[in-house]
Amino acid sequence: MSTKEILQVSDLTMAYGDIIIAENINFSVKKGEIFVILGGSGCGKSTLMRHMIGLEKPQLGDIFLCHQSIVTASYDERLGILQDIGVMFQGGALFGSMSLLENVSLPLEEFTDLPNNAIQRIATDKLHMVGLQGAEHLLPAEISGGMQKRAAIARAMVLDPQILFLDEPSAGLDPITSAELDKLIVNLANILGITFIIVSHELASIYAIADRVIMLDKAAKTIIAEGKPHYLRDNADDDRVRRFLQQGVAGERIH
């Protein structure tokens, strides 16, 4: 693993009991990359993300985040690793009883010794960065799905992590909100140098933001393609990959 690589997955086998979800998963992600994991429904994209953020234990193999294994880490090492990453879950997973500001402030309150006014300042800035000016004191239930996702990104990046994991950021959003979110992701990657690992199957979004993608396949139970999305669309050896990446992108009506 070179110093440029911020995440490495090696020989990973994911399984629930006897049922193998995917095996022989190998890839690495460079610092500052926007890396997308794509594939059809049920191929194990979200499961792979859950393994990378330490919510599931792999059956075999190892995962290195910022050069440390999250699989074999001790409790304290794991806490250190987790502070270097941020996660946005599919539904946002904001705490329903807290306002957006309280949600975003929480990691600062728990892991820093910053005074209260500094915490408020930083959390407010992060909310403004994702375009949520004026919504600081609203509860998650009082805002739209797109705003909840942006607030969840603000919370995920409040400790200035090196890697941000996003699970289906565009799912369920209208095209304009989705495009705004894509712009935000690219800006954060360019300005702050954050590495993004995104689980998605929204092709428009993938072409707009991804530096590199891997594609998982349910039948093959492993990675069937890795590379730049536009290149794979036109040149992938595997027919399944080309078909997936060409599907409906031209925006033609089905007759």
Partner: peptide, 12 residues
Amino acid sequence: NQEVDALHTMGL
């Protein structure tokens, strides 16, 4: 709602 997962990933 994955809020418990979110706590885990925040190290809480």
